[in-house]
Amino acid sequence: MSLSTPDVLVRLMTAPDGRGRESAWAAFLEQYSGLILHVARSRSRDHDAVMSAYEFVVDQLRCDDHARLRRYVADGHGKFTTWLLVVVRRLCVDHHRQRYGRLQAADGDRHMERRLLTDLVGDVVGLELLADPDSPDDMVLRDERSALLSRALERLTPSDRLILRLRFDDGLSVPEIARLLKAPSPFVMYRRLDHTLATLRRVLEAYGVRSAS
């Protein structure tokens, strides 16, 4: 068991008999019910729905001799509370889908709306991508520029592309991205974003594209 495994979970996993497991399970609930309810409340304001989700999560964590919790012991990365937040959130999503069904139309719309990174950062690096080309020449020019930008983006690291996606697609502020990606400070993230955009401009210039700026 990892050093980050909390005592109460160790007790639950190593309880020698049913009575010990019951006692350890009660202690586990005492310690983590607040977290479970916190997640359930974040997904619904309706009291009945929150308690129904809570009951579902507790049942799922308990079933099959706490099989889900054993997965953390077996292969858990990160802190137990972070892992439990992920698990409880997913169970709340499952519960919601069981109760109300999957929002297929909304998922589909979201997929349809997904924008290419080239469209998102084109303006930022000063590359006019001609969103609505009105002549065959403009269409060719647009496709060429888009392909060049796409090649430039591929030369970035996945982490840098993720930062661009979080900033220009999800609309997160730089301090929010810094917190999400555990950057030492927002300033580090500002510098990294500036550096990434400067790299893109240099690569485009190397391809012979002069930015509008």
Partner: peptide, 29 residues
């Protein structure tokens, strides 16, 4: 998977694994 999301958020993944996960996250809304 759950452990990978938690590990990424806590900054506990090895560098190469973190890059692989970042690549997935960039593409997966």
């Amino acid at each position: 998977d759950e452990a990978t999301v938690a590990g990424f958020l806590d900054g506990e993944l090895p560098a190469d694994e973190r890059e692989r996960v970042a690549g997935h996250l960039e593409k997966c809304d």
